[in-house]
Amino acid sequence: MIARRMFSWPTWDWRGAEELDRMRRQLDRLFGDLMGDFSREPTAGVFPLINVTEDNDNYYVRAELPGIKADELDISVTGNSLAISGERKILSESESAHYHRREREAGSFSRMVSLPGQIDSAKVEASCADGILTVVLPKAESAKPRQISVKTTS
């Protein structure tokens, strides 16, 4: 009886530890997923936050830059990376103004984005409307998807 306990106990203990380890790993993964959900929307990144989309011909980079005029922005393209920099100015109001809330911020910013494919840097266009900057970057011919028609041999 004692011998059996001595024999079986460590085995059970070892399996138990393995089981606990597996559970811990599962929990870690679960928490990792949860954390991943939070980190998908970056809480502290580089200003401005950007959205990048593509269609067959172009890449589109958009950023929300309220109160920034087009001439206050400095946009340049090198290779397949786009640099956006500038400064957001908030004009000071009259001396007699008492602030109740001040959530809008002024400051300088600079951001670099690498695009996944080659771009035709000569044809890049940027526009600013309603506080949204849109940069259209035409894809280089080599980066465009090519439709390949399948020939039927009759």
Partner: peptide, 9 residues
């Protein structure tokens, strides 16, 4: 004026 803007969600 010279401070760097932080991205905010």
């Amino acid at each position: 004026e010279t401070k760097t803007l932080q991205a905010k969600v």
